[in-house]
Design a protein around this nucleic acid. Structure first.
Length: 426
RNA sequence: GGAAGAGUGGCAGAGCUGGUUUAAUGCACUAGUCUUGAAAACUAGCGUGCGUGAAAGCGUACCGGGGGUUCGAAUCCCUCCUCUUCCGCCA
């Protein structure tokens, strides 16, 4: 959520940024509506405060009058207050309505894309920030997609997953389960080595947390809900982790805060269909190791690149063919100012699969979270939040299984053999 | 799930028979005085949001969250949340 003073002072810059998200003049007019609503809010506030001040003063004098035994005068003033009371409660109603209206407007405005974000409306307009080194791997015509391989080697039992829950809830078995757990272990250890503090978070969150990171109020349809208790199943560990310090004021020495968390992720994925959802490509439940940072605003873009480097290091160690994209305005998430996506090439499916998304949210989340720090001048300032997948498991699993298939079986990447205890699946 | 008790500023802790509370006091913290330096002592400062103002400041709201009673609520009432103790159930 953008801050209103920021909108007032940087309108041109915001307009320029939102145009990259294909906002036309009509939509952009919401910025003026916001300023107008905020002016209204200020006026109401001033008026209300004045009346409350009068009520307070008179009420106090009534107390004094009662003490000195001047009942008549006291009662006269009571009716005086009652009149003011009517006014103040009207104003309070107005203030409430105004606040809700303003909030609703603000919830509609996405983050302002960074200057580096290319204009564009679809994923085809994303910029290849760093292309694959070398040629695309070619496995020849006998290569099988992972959904066949996992069946051949009994790594995943999709059918029984369907029986237990439904489509998109795979049952990992045997070496499939172990390979996934090994990758998780590897990712967590790598994150720890990079200075991230491991946390183990609740997998259900309340509404306040959902709002804090921007899933609510608009995207409740993408989350599984537990209405009886008003909880949501997390779509990513980003939600609980970024909410750790909600409503807190940190000191400069606390920054940067670096967290890593493993969690299952639950997504309804309403509206998905086709080849996208085959096998492990798109699931309702999957596992992921997430990295999150809360940093001084002056550092956030440097930090973003260190996070990109970290993810890149993981893919290199796993020896997977990858490329890095810089998302265009149209593909950029609602809350992000700049996002780098990592894609791994599936040689059997002959397509790129997104395995990580690393983003800087600047103050967009921290403003909702009320996550601030006291800066060098002792003033309170919003921190910048960033996060990235490091990494999401299913597509990594899919690529390892597909790209490493040989006549003898599936070869386990060197770096995770110490976790799996086996070097080939056959 | 049942019963009882409790939630006050960074911490501790008063106030809780409604009206000098503008939330006492102590500790911690910050600055200053003193000191070669430190400690001690003394002095001052020390929450958050919003409005207003160039600023100092002034106003307003906040004593777990929300709502209510009243001229006036930390204080009374309702409701939700959390914690503690006991009972029940349970990995």
């Amino acid at each position: 959520m953008l801050q209103v003073p920021y909108i007032r002072e940087n309108k041109d810059q915001i307009v320029e940024g939102l145009r990259k998200r294909s906002w036309d003049d009509d939509r952009l007019s919401i910025l003026d509506d916001i300023v107008k609503k905020d002016d209204e809010r200020k006026n109401i506030q001033t008026e209300l405060d004045t009346i409350l001040s009068q009520i307070n003063a008179i009420s106090k004098s009534i107390g004094d009058l009662f003490k000195s035994g001047n009942q008549e005068e006291a009662n006269a003033r009571k009716s005086e207050v009652q009149a003011l009371k009517q006014k103040s409660s009207d104003l309070e109603d107005q203030a409430k309505a105004n606040k809700e209206a303003l909030q609703e407007l603000l919830f509609q405005v996405p983050n302002v894309p960074n200057t580096l974000v290319p204009a564009g409306s679809t994923e085809d307009d994303n910029e290849v920030y760093q292309d694959l080194e070398g040629a695309l791997p070619d496995l020849g015509t006998s290569a099988k997609p992972h959904w066949e391989l996992v069946e051949d080697y009994k790594l995943i039992d999709f059918k029984r997953g369907v029986k237990i829950t439904g489509a998109g809830f795979p049952l990992y078995t045997g070496k499939g389960a172990k390979l996934q757990r090994s990758l998780v272990q590897f990712f967590l250890n790598e994150a720890e080595a990079a200075g991230y503090n491991e946390v183990n978070v609740p997998f259900l969150v309340n509404e306040d947390s959902g709002r804090g990171t921007g899933q609510l109020p608009d995207k409740e349809g993408q989350m599984y809900a537990v209405p009886l208790d008003k909880f949501y199943l997390i779509p990513t560990a980003e939600v609980p982790v970024t909410n750790i310090h909600r409503n807190e004021i940190l000191s400069t020495e606390d920054l940067p805060l670096k967290y890593t968390a493993f969690s299952p992720c639950f997504r309804r994925e309403a509206g998905s269909y086709g080849a996208d959802v085959k096998g492990l490509n798109r699931l309702h439940q999957f596992e992921k190791v997430e990295i999150v940072q809360m940093v001084h605003p002056s550092q956030s873009y440097d930090v973003l690149m260190t996070m990109v480097d970290h993810v890149e290091g993981l893919l290199k160690k796993l020896e997977l063919p990858y490329r890095i994209l810089r998302l265009c305005g149209g593909d950029l998430g609602f809350t992000s100012a700049l996002t780098y996506d990592f894609e791994v090439y599936s040689a059997a499916q002959k397509r790129w699969l997104e395995v990580s998304s690393v983003s800087n949210f600047e103050t967009f989340q921290s403003n909702r979270l009320k996550l601030r720090f006291k800066n060098e001048d002792g003033k309170k300032e919003l921190v910048h939040t960033l996060n990235g997948s490091a990494l999401a498991l299913p597509r990594i699993m899919a690529c390892i299984i597909e790209n490493n298939q040989t006549g003898d079986g599936i070869v386990i990447p060197e770096v995770i053999r110490k976790y799996t205890g086996f070097s080939i699946i056959n």
